[in-house]
Amino acid sequence: MNKKVILQDLGLKDYKETWDYQEQLFQETLDIKIKNRREEANLETPNHFVLVEHPHVFTLGKTGDFSNLLVDEKQLERKGAKFYKTNRGGDITYHGPGQIVGYPILDLDNFFTDIHKYLRLLEEMVILTLSEYGITAERSEGETGVWLDVGTPFARKICAMGVRASRWVTMHGFALNVNADLGFFDLMIPCGIKDKAVTSLNLELGKKEVDVAEVKQKLLRHFQGLFEAEMVKEKTSV
């Protein structure tokens, strides 16, 4: 099993361009798996972890409800935001500057074939990272992602998740609010969940800004530990 994970940090990158790149990596891995099965080959499948920040964008999962977007196209344009309907799971979410977005494109045959476990480990990666900042984060039953003060009137989400998988190959991933402009979340019903707030790490710490590079390092360290993986940095190619 190949537990090496190729890491790329794309910096600030358009959502659609990044989605297309994900699809390319995803399809390349699927093609290898299909070849292995049809031709009884034994080619190694790659694993990727793409980090990125997006300009303001709203995305809707394949089973999401469009009515959870509370503004029309013209209003989005005035806000400098785009909208895409995607092929991931989950409902509507927002991406923007100050948010760490991670897209693991993994062949789970290299790790474990369990999507539930995969999501829980991604959540655990974020929970462990936030604990290093003195923040107690947790899961909310039936609501994928990472939350604070679950079960109280102050419950709020700090990290959203939505993935797609085919033949145990994953794409899409998580979005952790670090220095996010929370005003954009008022333009939708986040993840289709009413009456629950959204927060960001800098707000929770009472800081104007948190070091994003430092948060990335912590996330990747915990990812490697949880998935027993080895990160290999690769120069950006998109």
Rank of each mutant, 00 (worst) to 15 (best):
V150T: 15
S140T: 00
W147S: 01
V146S: 04
E143Y: 12
L148E: 03
A137H: 04
I135Y: 01
A137Y: 01
L128Q: 15
E143C: 06
L130V: 00
E123F: 06
T152N: 09
T129E: 09
I135W: 00
G145P: 07
R120Y: 09
V126I: 15
T129K: 07
T152L: 12
R139G: 04
T136I: 13
T129G: 07
R139Q: 05
D149F: 13
E141L: 10
R139T: 13
T129V: 12
E132N: 14
T144K: 11
E141H: 08
T136P: 00
E123P: 04
G145Y: 06
M125F: 04
G134Y: 12
G145F: 09
Y133I: 04
I127T: 05
T152F: 11
R139M: 06
L122V: 06
L128D: 13
G142R: 07
L122N: 14
V146T: 10
W147H: 05
T136D: 12
L122H: 12
E124A: 05
G145S: 08
T136N: 13
Y133V: 08
I135G: 03
E143I: 00
V146I: 09
T136R: 14
L122D: 04
E138N: 13
R120D: 06
M125S: 05
T129D: 10
R120S: 13
T129Q: 09
G151P: 11
